[in-house]
């Protein structure tokens, strides 16, 4: 079990990076950067969120799930495009991140799929998303909601 402290270094790092994504609490070794999502059209469609999850520690970490008040079924999904150019999406399962490595959740690959939205995702708002790790650790990030046509965290 890792220590649950809000490190000032982490907060400083995120602030220096010009990111509006303060980690609220979490294992000191996991750093979440560049989190963003797209506004939703209504509440029937699933939303998607993206971010980079970095393991700055000496031991591997395994992401096993997500939790958010925004959606009943948040899950890490992966989009794959085959040789014929056909894209499909499926649950990604557990994601192990080796020490010093990072995993990018980005368009066209891994993403936090937000199924059964409980509220509208409105541009300019944020929502808390908690990453659950296999050692019981949690990291919560505030994910900014950008426009529907956003392409990345800078949009």
């Amino acid at each position: 079990m890792k220590k649950y402290i809000l490190t000032s270094t982490l907060a400083a790092l995120l602030t220096l990076g010009g990111l509006s994504v303060p980690a609220l609490a979490g294992p000191e070794d996991v750093v979440v950067e560049h989190a963003w999502s797209r506004a939703s059209i209504g509440m029937n469609r699933p939303g998607a969120a993206y971010m980079t999850i970095r393991n700055t520690g000496d031991e591997p970490v395994t992401l096993i799930g997500l939790a958010t008040p925004l959606a009943m079924m948040p899950e890490i999904h992966e989009t794959k495009t085959n040789a014929e150019g056909v894209s499909s999406m499926s649950p990604a399962g557990e994601i192990a991140i080796a020490p010093g490595e990072s995993v990018a959740l980005e368009p066209g690959g891994l993403h936090a799929m937000l199924m059964r939205l409980q509220e509208l995702m409105t541009e300019g708002d944020t929502f808390p998303l908690t990453l659950l790790f296999d050692d019981g650790g949690e990291v919560t990030v505030e994910v900014p909601i950008l426009g529907i046509a956003a392409r990345g965290p800078e949009d």
Binding site: T81, P107, A149
Partner: peptide, 12 residues
């Protein structure tokens, strides 16, 4: 339009 990842990305 119910596509959360690929379609909005392609459209953008």
């Amino acid at each position: 339009t119910y596509c959360p990842d690929v379609c909005p990305t392609t459209l953008s």
